[in-house]
Amino acid sequence: MGTGTSLWQTAIGVLRPRAPLPTAIPWLAIAVGFGLLLLTWQLASNHYAGAGRSVLFPSPEAVWKSAIHYTGSSPDSVRDRTTLFTDLGASFTRVALAFVLATLVAVPLGVLMGALPIFEKLLQPVSEFIRYVPVPALIPLLIVLFGIGEAPKIMLIFLGTVFQLLLMVSDEIRRVPNDLVQACYTLGGHWDEAVTKVLFPAAAPGIFDAMRLCQGWAWTWLIVAELVAANEGMGFRILKYQRFLLTDKIFVYLIVLGVVGLVMDVLFRLAHRLLFRWQ
């Protein structure tokens, strides 16, 4: 059969490494991926519902209803919506402050580390060491040192990202072809000009990409920080809802976190494309 072989051929073609996909197949695959996620979710919730404990694991439908509730106009809906935006605002502020702080520290130091071998020897082994200290293990110490206000949370996110960013920035600087630096020298450039006019602009797209990745990790550390001691924030609210078994609301918060992460990622990618047209 003609169609039979062509379908077969499509199936085989899709499995060829690095082969371009025929039109519509990518969208189909994305839809199937999310479909599988929903299916797994539904099956899992069925399992709990069968035991009469559907409150432990709400079905996709229950979460959808809860999400709709957040858009409603009843006093309950308004209150929950206000809470969500307050939580999101508090969390976003923490991530933003810590991320800006980490960038301000890691980018200049990383550039120096990548450009000057003496700074590499001075900072690289130390950074590698600290990077492998699990950041949550620092929470008790941070609380002792900074109390339970905003400071320990921001410090936790800062510590969780700054060393990663530092190492990635220095790697990006080291990846710049030596030819470009030599060209700068033969044109009369001094060492500082080799850094500011060649190494940094050449590595800037990679550095920006590293910042995008770190921004994602910052949200992970945020939740860890808020689980411990807070009055508001996404992580705090999720813990609170756990206490009252409001699992459908937990799911709404999880979805919001996923969407925020995705939006941030897309914004970084867009900015990247605008800033570095030369690539």
């Binding site: 072809p177 602009p201 050449a202 800037a204 570095f276």
Partner: peptide, 8 residues
């Protein structure tokens, strides 16, 4: 290898 500054 040319070594032009690609961002300029």
């Amino acid at each position: 290898n040319y070594t032009l500054f690609p961002w300029l």
